[in-house]
Nucleic acid binder design. Sequence first.
DNA 1: TAGATTGTTAATCGATTAACAATC
DNA 2: TAGATTGTTAATCGATTAACAATC
Lengths: 236, 236
Amino acid sequence: MNVFTGAARCPFQRLHPIRFPVKNKATSLNNQEARKIPKAVIKRLSLYSRILQNLALNKIEKISSSDLGARLGFNSAQVRKDLANFGQFGVPGFGYHVSDLRREIRRILGTDRHVAVGLVGVGNLGRALLSYAGFARQGFHIVAGFDVDPTRGQDLGVPVHPMDQLEDKIHDLNIEIVALTVPAEACPAVVERLVAAGVPAILNFVPCRLDVPTGVVVHYVDLALEMESLSYYINK
Amino acid sequence: MNVFTGAARCPFQRLHPIRFPVKNKATSLNNQEARKIPKAVIKRLSLYSRILQNLALNKIEKISSSDLGARLGFNSAQVRKDLANFGQFGVPGFGYHVSDLRREIRRILGTDRHVAVGLVGVGNLGRALLSYAGFARQGFHIVAGFDVDPTRGQDLGVPVHPMDQLEDKIHDLNIEIVALTVPAEACPAVVERLVAAGVPAILNFVPCRLDVPTGVVVHYVDLALEMESLSYYINK
DNA sequence: TAGATTGTTAATCGATTAACAATC
DNA sequence: TAGATTGTTAATCGATTAACAATC
């Protein structure tokens, strides 16, 4: 591929350099060498999705990158750049069609489908998550809880299983995400079993670094850490 | 201040450039123009603090920046650079005294004291946080809950007050952090009251951007967003 | 002293923002 | 067409890593 890929590579500088047509990177790269998308981009995509959902509810059909960004405190260039990672979804001079962009982002994130979620460790936090309606609205369904004491949280509408059924249920229910709310001591052993069972993603609420092989994704929700860092900003 | 501040500024390049003594920035700047510390640094400080706590519990008295970093997946240079923002806490050729460094970090974060926390919105998530023991261990005490229905969660050992007592109790109990777990609709009105009451920090669990004046710090814990971004990483 | 590890600069890397031709 | 806004490059900004003299 020996195409002129941009004005700056031209050895003769001009005030208004000539632009040569450049193929969109998103399409010119094959999937093998897909560029790594920063995690921050994915998080923002998820935020865009939420805004677009609200716009759709309010029957607003069109939005510009600057308006979308402003609603989240972002620069318009950031919005366009984030989207450019995945293709061209806008109309120059117009903006974005809300429903189209929303559909595209949901497709990219994979939130245009139902995802089965398991929860391991039915303590206080676990119980709260079991009864948290917010997930289901977004297509995430907690289909099972697991605990050493399976009588815990049986009143919340989600079946709770003993730990020895972990692998079987993960397989049978096609669980793709596990929310982890066990005591810190139990963490390493449970994680090993989850990984062995082929769970691809863990949402970890335990203040404990998880050792997982590459390919398994872990996101950390660390409430104590959030409190501690807030504490820093208070005294001044 | 016309001091030679580094070798690279010297117009005559040498293979091993001469270093002139340079004052530590942390001490040479007065507090007025204190450099802005990135949020990421503060979060890591909090992680260091937790590791140091564990080391202390295990009677380990000494640690190097590379060992401390390795336990969290960080580079040794990052550990040293993070700490350099606040002063010099190590001993060249030795490393760091665990208890000294821990004390310093706790002082920096302000976690060497008790902080009163209020919780507004005693729904499922709110109840879970009220009964979450993890906070108290770190010096954060949830001293009051608030809800439109103050009968909610009265069984969890924390008094729950009606909303009209919000300002009074914030003042009387010296509440410095508010955990926000109200329905999204209630968000703007509640936040306005919190700000007016002088609450300096909010830990927001509501999927809703908060508009606060500068000086008030908001950290977001967005469970649906975490789920959505995990979803992206699953399908491949 | 010899060996180890810090504190600090400079280099690298990556992410955000600005700028603007292309496009509708 | 004139006005607006995209997609994309280059510039800026900031954060991480490498390197190494200073130090114990």
